[in-house]
């Protein structure tokens, strides 16, 4: 989906955020639990749990689908020696048993697996996406990170991570001083050229944009995970907005080609004012580290857009 080059750039920029925390950890020698007798051997089947654990400076012994994690621009990056346990919806039980996993960290989206996973090890469920959704993504995901960090005795590292995240968000916000702060749609274009998939309330994009001083232009309903599919005429609901489409390469280009022929698209205020811009892909189903990933993508997209 995203080009390898962009992915590397993305990873590099994200690394620069996490690096201070990671360095601090490696100097006091507590970065990896294997170094400590009695520390946990943790498996993280889904991306939320993988990136949350890594952000706490602990490498899992086994993580779900390494290739997907990398393709979604997973941050922090996975160390090479972490075993792969396959797709998150069916994490390989035998590998977890072989590796003598003694704690499994999952997000609530996997909670229907608890009966199956209980046979391997105790389970810790983080609850970031549930019920009617939670618009305060950063607070929600960091309190869940803290709750887990307490249970493995790493609360101070969680706090340090949160402080570095706040500092980075503040820096990015300052970096966009002087840039026009119109509300913005975050959209995945559909190749049919008739509908778009919007990321708004409950999604990482909603809360991070707010923290960067921008409003999400879609204020209508979304699902638990903060997305909704709407017809393109709905983009007229915010005449003054920008539209950032997620740049999935050929798929996005095919969609744009279809849209260019559409009367409705061409009459949308934001199209007439030429306010359609690309934004680098981000993980719409992530944990707290995704906030940094999206913030960097959004900052880069706004800078590329210009001050207008």
């Amino acid at each position: 989906m995203t080009s390898p080059k962009r992915r590397r750039l993305l990873a590099a920029s994200l690394l620069s955020v996490v690096a201070p925390a990671a360095r601090a950890l490696s100097t006091d020698g507590s970065a990896f639990p294997a170094a400590h007798p009695g520390s946990h051997r943790i498996a993280t089947p889904d991306r939320v749990s993988t990136e949350t654990l890594l952000a706490l400076g602990v490498a899992p012994v086994a993580a779900g689908a390494r290739s997907v994690y990398a393709a979604m621009g997973g941050t922090p990056p996975l160390p090479a020696d972490v075993a792969d346990i396959g797709y998150w919806f069916e994490p390989n039980l035998e590998v977890m048993r072989e590796l003598r996993v003694d704690l499994i960290l999952i997000e609530a989206m996997s909670s229907s697996l608890t009966d199956v996973l209980r046979r391997i090890a105790p389970i810790f469920v983080m609850d970031i996406y549930s019920g009617n959704g939670h618009p305060d993504f950063v607070e929600r995901s960091s309190s869940e990170m803290f709750r887990f960090a307490r249970s493995i005795g790493r609360e101070s590292i969680a706090q340090r991570y949160r402080r570095s995240l706040d500092a980075r968000l503040a820096a990015l916000r300052d970096g966009m001083r002087g840039y026009g702060r119109r509300p913005a749609f975050i959209a995945q274009l559909d190749p049919s050229g008739q509908s778009v998939f919007l990321y708004a309330r409950n999604c990482v994009a909603w809360d991070v944009m707010r923290r960067l001083g921008f409003d999400n232009a879609w204020t209508g309903a979304t699902n638990t995970y903060g997305c909704v599919q709407v017809g393109i005429d709905q983009l007229a609901s915010a005449p003054d907005a920008d539209l950032f489409y997620i740049d999935y390469g050929a798929q996005a280009q095919a969609a744009l080609a279809q849209l260019e022929d559409s009367v409705v698209w061409n009459s949308l205020p934001l199209v007439r004012r030429r306010r359609v811009y690309p934004i680098a892909p981000f993980d719409p189903l992530g944990g707290l580290p995704t906030a940094i990933q999206f913030a960097e993508s959004f900052h880069a997209a706004v800078v590329a857009r210009g001050r207008r």
């Binding site: 998150w88 919806f89 998939f197 699902n223 997305c227 599919q229």
Partner: peptide
């Protein structure tokens, strides 16, 4: 599946 709800993967499996 079109709803973007990841939990549908369990159903798909």
């Amino acid at each position: 599946m079109a709803s973007g709800d990841p939990r549908m993967s369990f159903l798909a499996a």
